[in-house]
Every structure is written in structure tokens, then in C-alpha cells.
Design a protein around this nucleic acid. Structure first.
Lengths: 212, 212, 212, 212
DNA sequence: CATGAATGAGCTTTCATTCAT
DNA sequence: AATGAATGAAAGCTCATTCAT
């Protein structure tokens, strides 16, 4: 792997092209052109077209998940961690727009049609969300009767759909921080124990008093 | 006199094949074989391959949305309507498994890559969810500060992701009604006004007392 | 053959469609629509698509050749017969425009690619021209050394190309009668014996003094 | 570095296949096989099937026209130039048989049905003939009253039809040089002024004394 | 006789992948 | 390692022809 930069250049090109055209409508030759390498060169770094997408998941999505994980370490309160994750997730739209476009759409295809492939970083992300829920439950802040497996998906789905909305709508009525606030608000308030309700008084609009 | 039943037969075959392979990997000839018609016959009923998918949206998704809309009319309480919609949505997994598989994945592709096409039934569904939110707000049950445009997407996303989970997982840890209850629970509780909180006492686990 | 009119209606429709699109780009279904019959009906009157073209040659071209032959009988002088044939041929452009368009182009295709088919009316037309030449030679008006087989083709080709010019050019610089006069003039003058040159004095612009 | 020779090889193969089957009945895959390249290779050198035909016109027909134009430069006498052009034209049958077959038939199709395409080399050829006529008129050898626009078409048509005759007839009754002589003879004699008639005495059978 | 829905062979064209240079 | 011309399988779609009604 002499030229590590070429691998990255191709991934970057693929992100751009997949975002524009979608995986199936993207041409390998177009990725090559975008990356300023020859068509054949791509096959020195990737097994095939699918492998470009998979590598993209592994690397880029993996990086994002790791970043979010580290960001959350700065926060101790489990409920505030959720709030922070929501903000982090939604911020991706502006910070990594093209990548977000690809992931949002192609993760699903891959999940279903690249049967053998298990999207590990995606699973890790869901697990990260789950760990926040269980942490909250251990501290008596989140209701025990809620299944973390359901909650992690519900929260992820809500965020993912919100992202899709921004990607498609040209002018966005709602700001990202507003949406982040409202979504974490509803989820946290909805999952809270009565005990937590007293710790985080309602007037302050749940946990995020500063954001109102 | 074109056979109206043949149109339906082809759509049904397409649902099956698209569910198995995905739109792009599906072959028109395979749909034809599944529908027991000749390849060319498909083009008597549909303009092209895209048109099969679009017709599927229009008809099948349209039908579902209409069914849900009618079901909700039996219920007056806005919060219980939300609960009912959640249950309806999640029930699709078992009632219309293959169709659900196709819609869940291809609606996204269509949203982005069939640029000109606006998925009307999908938009109507989101609007239906939104109307439940605003209704709740008008009756003082849902907090005014929550943007219906955000809430509708968050709820839809949560449900959609949940559906995907069942479609992919071979053995499901969580029952549909359990998930339905937990999700509507969290959303309703999270969106409720304080006034509503008194009307729907907590012990009864929000609105759905029976399901705890 | 109960409905003789349907056969004719289909031929007429085919003339129109072939003229517009050419034989290969014409659709049988379009001929059917134009003729106001069902697609299948065409196959009650014609063996296949080729057969429509062939029937068109036989009937329509045959009719034309017969008409010209009869017209020529009014004239005794072989050279004036040639002149008359030229005028007749070129007049087809206006009298039977669409048919002319089809014949001009498709006769060639048929000649080469409908191998087995011998275009009898076309051959008869060439023979008609040939007979005018030999007649002229027998009366000592056309030079003996000219091969009728060559002359008939040269004259036919000249006329045919002229017709094509009118069919394609939107505004025609040259009138039909002008062209007819010039072409018969050149051919007759070019083929004449010296004896004939004295009989048809030059000042009067060869044989066709009246036409100037 | 695309192989320039491959472009030529494909054109050559196309000439052969189009000559045998005609443009419409020719299969791209057959051209590929004949050229000993893969089907896809054709599309590296040509936009589509039409483009093969068009390129053929541009190149091969263009080359022929240029060759003839140069050949004519060796001759100063306008009438002898005509004679020479006729011989050149008819010689194509033996020198470039297959190409001639394609051009003779497909030029017509193209003229009418590839509406937008203007067959430039063909137009140039007609212009070349026209220039010979006007040159003859300027030198007082060809009658002023003859319209060059008509004469060029008449002569071209005569030659073209003669060529078709040879291409179709298996055994040719008339030799090419005989036909060339007779056709140029008739046209030149037919177009001549009286003044020219004296310069080129008749006994010598117009301009070509040797060929009687 | 007439219909026109149905057929399916067969076409052009695309594009992921290979491999000689 | 890098190239990019060449490959050829494979797919969507058309349309002449058939045949049950």
C-alpha cells in the first residue's frame, strides 16, 4: 500500500459521485475521473465497485462514530449525552453533507442487498446509542420498562429521517439546533423516570435550558 | 380491452421481485416471469421500469395511507390517534411484508434520484401525521413550541427504522405491539403538555394503560 | 376477398406512412391506425410487412406504368414520345407525391435486399423506355451505336434523380416543365442521328419548339 | 491512445456488412465480428450505429470526391473533364464495389430520414459536376440556356443508375468503358453549343474519337 | 371477417472489469 | 504501480406477428 493518499482520493471522489448520482447510477469511470486516476487504478485499491462503498462505510462512517464517541466522553450526565449525540448527528448535514447523503441512502441498500456484508460501523453507532440508554436506566433516569433495542432504533430513525429532510429540502424552515433541541427534548422527556422529572424541572424545557 | 387484472398481477410480481432484489438488481424479465406474462406485455401496462415503481407508490402506498386515514377516523382523541397510527404503521410489517420492504428502501432512492417525481402518497402520509400533531396542539394536549414539521419526521423516522429492523432481523426480540406501545408512549409523553399529563395519569403508562 | 376497399385503404395508408418514415422506420401498427383497421386485419390482406411494399409496387407502380404507356400511344413520333415520357415521369412529383417518395427510395432497397423479389412493374417501365429508344433507332432517328440497355438506364436515372431533388428541396428553383424540357432536349439531341438533326432543326431548340 | 487503425478497420467492416445486408438489416455485432473487435469497442470509436454510416460518408465518400477532383485537374478541356468524370464515376463499381453498393442505396435513405444530417461529401460531388457545366458554359461550349442545377442532377442520376445496374446484374452485357463512352457522348453532344459542334466533329463521335 | 392484447425474439447500447503495456 | 483501450455479458425495450374471442 505504497500510496495511501490514492486510496483516500478515490474514496473522496466516490463520496462525491455517489452523493450526486447514487451508487447504482454512479459510473466507476466517473469516480476515476473525479479522483484523477485511471479506471484500472481503482481496482488496485478496491476489489470492485461494491468494495468502494463498503470501504467508505468502514472508514468514513467509522471515523464519524469514533468522533462522536469521543465527544460524548466530555459529558457525564447520560441524558445530556443523548442531547449531545442528537446535536452531533444532525450537525453532520452541514459538516459532511455529501457523505451524509450517501450514507443515508446507501446504508439501507447495503443492509438488504449486500447480504453478506454487515455494516459494522453502523452497528457500532446503534450500540453507542443503546449504551446511552442503558446508562440512563442504570442511573434511574430512564424508565426500566423501555427496551434499549427499541429506543436506539427509534432515536436513530428520527434523526436519520430529519437528516434526509434537510438534504432534500432546498430551503430549510427549521434550524438544525432547533430540531436537535426539540427531538432530544421529546425523547428525553418521553423516556424519563418520574425521579428524573424532578431533577430536570420542566420549566427549563427539559434538560436543555440554554437552548430555548 | 386491456386486462385490468394484468396490471395488478404485474405490480404484485414487481413487489415480490423488488423486495427480493431491490429495484436496480431486479430484471424486468424476472417480473414478467413472476407475473406469468411476456416481457413485452409489461410495456403495454407501464411506460418503463421506473414507471412500475412509481405506479406501485401511487397505488399500493396510496391505498395504505387511505386505509390508515380511515382507521383513524374511529378515534377522536388526538393522542390515541397517534398511538393508533403507530400501531397501524408497524403492523404493515406482517400484513404487507414485501411491499413494506420495497417502500422502505426505494422511497428514498426515488426521493433523491427520480428527481422529477414527487412521491405524493408518501407526502400525504407525512401530512397525515402532521395533522395529528396540530390537532393535539389545538386541543392543548401537545406542546405549542414543538414544530409539527419536525415531529412528523421524527415519528415517521422512528417507525420506519423500527420496520427496517424487523425486516432484516430473522428472529425478532421485540413484539410489534410492544414496540408500538413503547414508541407511542415515548413520543406522546415527550410531546405532552403539563395539562395533558394530568388527564392521562402516568401510572397507567401514558395513554395505553393495558400494555405495561 | 369480400372487402376490396380495405386492401386499398391499407395500401393508401402505407403509402402515407412509408413516405413519412421510410419502410424500416414505419410501424405496422401506424399503418393500421392510419387505415383505421386493427393491426391484425392487415395480416388478413397481406402476408407480412414486406408484402405491403411489394403489393404497393405491383398495384400502384403498375398503374402508373400502364397510364404512361397509354398516354404515349397518342404520340407517333418516337422522339416526341421520349419527350412525353419525361414530362409524364416528372409530373408524378406533384400528381402522386407520397407514392413517388416511397418508390424512389424503396425500389432500391427492394432491388437489393428483397433478393427473391423482382420488381416487375419497374422492369416494365425500363422496358417501356427501351422500346422508345429502339423505335427511334428503327426509324433512323437515334444512333444505332447507342445501346438501348444503357440509354434506358441513363434516362431513367436522370429523371429519378431529378424527382428526388424536388422531393427534398422545399422551394424548387426549377419548374417541372422547365426541367422536363431541358432533360428531354439534352437526351434527344445527344442520341439523335445526323439525319434526325436535319428533320428537327436546332433553332427551335431541338424537338420541343412548342415548350419554350 | 485510441488506435486510429481500429477506426478504419471498423469502417471497412461496416462497408462490407452494410453492402451485404443494408444498413437496417446489418447488426452492430456483425460489424464487430467482421472487424475482429468486441461489440463494445465500436462504441469507443462511434457514437452509435448511425454514426458509423455518417463517418463512412464523411471519410470514404469524401476521399473519393477528392480523388476525382484531383484527377480532373489533369484535364483542361471542360468537355473532356465531363468525359473523365463519367469514367471515374463508373470505375468505382470495380474499384470500390462494396462501398459503392452502400453509398448508392444508403445515401438516399440518409437524405430523407436522417433529416438533420446533410451529406456534405455528396453535395460537394454534385457541386463538382456543376462546376464542370458552368466552366463549359463560360467557354461557350455548353449551351447557356441549360440550368447547371438540372444538368448536374441529370448526369449524376444517369451515372448512379448505371452503377446500380452493374451492382445488381450478375453478368454485365455492357462494359464499363462502353457505357462511360456512350453516356458522356450523349450528355456532351446534347449539351453542346453549335460552336462546340464544329470544334469537336461528329465523325469522331464527339470528343472521344478513339472509342468509336 | 375483424379485433387488439399478447407474445418473445432480437436488437442496440452500457459499463464493470481486465490486462498488455 | 499505473494506465486506459478493450472486452463481452447482460439488460431494457421494440415491434412484427399471432390467435382467442
Amino acid at each position: 500500500m505504497k500510496d495511501e493518499g490514492k486510496h483516500a482520493k478515490i474514496i473522496a471522489a466516490a463520496v462525491k459521485v455517489f452523493a450526486e448520482k447514487g451508487f447504482h447510477n454512479a459510473r466507476v469511470s466517473e469516480i476515476a475521473r473525479e479522483a484523477k486516476v485511471a479506471d484500472g487504478t481503482i481496482y488496485l485499491y478496491f476489489k470492485n465497485k461494491d468494495d468502494i462503498l463498503i470501504s467508505m462505510f468502514e472508514q468514513e462512517l467509522g471515523k464519524i462514530v469514533e468522533d462522536i464517541r469521543q465527544d460524548l466522553e466530555q459529558e457525564k450526565d447520560p441524558l445530556k449525552k443523548i442531547e449531545r449525540l442528537v446535536m452531533n448527528h444532525l450537525s453532520m448535514v452541514t459538516k459532511q453533507r455529501q457523505l451524509t447523503e450517501v450514507l443515508g441512502i446507501e446504508v439501507r441498500q447495503s443492509a438488504k442487498f449486500m447480504k453478506k456484508y454487515v455494516n459494522k460501523p453502523f452497528m457500532e453507532y446503534l450500540d453507542l446509542i443503546r449504551s446511552l440508554i442503558t446508562e440512563g436506566q442504570e442511573q434511574g433516569l430512564i424508565r426500566q420498562e423501555l427496551a434499549p433495542g427499541i429506543m436506539k432504533r427509534a432515536l436513530f430513525g428520527a434523526l436519520d429521517e430529519m437528516v434526509r429532510y434537510w438534504l432534500l429540502s432546498t430551503q430549510s424552515k427549521h434550524s438544525i439546533s432547533e430540531a436537535a433541541k426539540q427531538i432530544s427534548d421529546v425523547f428525553i422527556l418521553g423516556m424519563m423516570t418520574e425521579k428524573a422529572q424532578k431533577l430536570y424541572p420542566r420549566q427549563q424545557s427539559a434538560v436543555s435550558s440554554a437552548a430555548s
